[in-house]
Nucleic acid binder design. Structure first.
Lengths: 112, 112
DNA sequence: TTGTATACCTCGCTTCACAAGGTATAATGC
DNA sequence: GCATTATACCTTGTGAAGCGAGGTATACAA
């Protein structure tokens, strides 16, 4: 009920998508490729994750969409809004916090 | 459908719980505290996450449970099985892989 | 006797992430 | 001319997480 409590680690797709779009405007298909390449294959968002995520992000006012036909196909370019930029900062903070926590537990006082 | 395809980043609770239990046998309540302290507050699993997770892990044969009354209260101690140990290794690998991927995207070629 | 710490538990909700499938065009290969 | 691959978008259905809220019970302190 609008408690907005994010899922500890969830939201990685959102985080990385926003991060890419903070660099430059991109369209969906391009984002998918950039994500896979840029993460050396570690992050491979299927379209069933990516497109719904983009729509949700736009509906929440974190992205602005701009439709543009190219070579007969339609591309939808997305760009960060100011709110999106703030959201990204918070997500990055949260990522650092949690992943540092995980590293602490993983590294904890033993060796095998 | 038993595709067993894990959720990219999900399974952090499972990862850290198994990691703690790789060090030593612990009971639920203790795990919750150790997790919070050991991660400097970053990881704070509610009991609604922790206990069901422990039961699931036990049902999957990754943990062995041992019930022991202490001071009139009942503690249930959990320990890693061999399968649990193997599972932990895989989860750690996966964590390293994905979190490195996220870092690549976060760090990517720009500055603002 | 009221509260706090210990110690376990379950139910129900929501949000995710995902696979699978669908539409359509352009370019490439045979 | 025909099939396949790449580009580019989309939705539906499912399952599993993770989480809050709430519930039981004992011990100890105020």
């Amino acid at each position: 009920m609008s408690k907005g409590n994010p899922n500890l680690m969830s939201g990685v797709p959102e985080l990385v998508v926003l991060r890419l779009l903070a660099r430059q405007e991109m369209y969906g298909y391009e984002i998918a490729r950039a994500l896979k390449l840029g993460s050396r294959g570690a992050l491979d968002l299927g379209e069933g994750v990516l497109y719904p995520a983009l729509h949700a992000l736009e509906a929440r006012g974190l992205l602005r969409a701009r439709s543009q036909p190219v070579d007969g196909r339609t591309r939808i370019y997305y760009a960060l809004t100011a709110r999106g930029r703030r959201r990204l900062e918070r997500l990055i903070e949260n990522w650092r916090h949690v992943s540092a926590g995980v590293e602490l537990i993983l590294g904890a006082t033993n060796r095998e």
